[in-house]
Amino acid sequence: MKKTIVHLESLQKNFGGLVAVNIDSLDIYKNSITGLIGPNGAGKTTLFNVICGNLKPENGDVYFLEEKITSLKTFQIARLGIGRVFQISRIFKGLSVRDNLFLVPSKNTNLEVISKRIESLLNDFGLIDFSDNYAGILSYGQQKMLEFARILMMDPKIILLDEPFSGLNPGEVEKLIKIIRKLNSETDIAFLIIDHAVSIVLRLCERVVVLDQGKIIADGLPNEIEKNERCIEAYLGRPFDV
């Protein structure tokens, strides 16, 4: 029986008259790699915003490990273990690379342990040479690496990735896929990934959820989704009846 890490119940989010998200029930399982796809405006990023507390839903609740987190503030949700990597790199460019990691609140307060952790993360992500430089001088790919390193400082139990592959060249895409797979197998971090590159998502994720106009229209294995007519319709539109 798979254990649930994030559970959405009767979740509804409106913007004025527009229903952005309308999900009866959704479970994200521990240590899973789940993809979240759908055409533009389907509500994917809005869903992330609701889960992370940036937006409050009109109806329904978000549960994290059986705890209701709907009314919590963003930083509290982050500290519980929900990490988020945004579409646009949000590292602190005016601070040093090391400081970007150093300031992350973590449960451990032992300075030595934290320093060691930072060193090892910087090493793993190829940033050790830039430790004392302003994060702003890093290349785009390196900034993404830094974001990952930073998220890991938080000891997250699930990482929400919003379009992580956008702007990366094929080599970097492979690298990122490797990192995600490695983290998923070595730790028990779950991943929930939004991306427009459907092919990458189908390749990487063990389960894919498809959103269209706020509702889940499909949920299953990648090869099932690939063949699912409703999904194809959602992306490409219905053919004209001649």
Binding site: A78, F86, F92, P105, R150, I151, M153
Partner: peptide, 8 residues
């Protein structure tokens, strides 16, 4: 917002 997202 980015700071909040990492728990600050």
């Amino acid at each position: 917002e980015g700071a909040e997202a990492i728990g600050i």
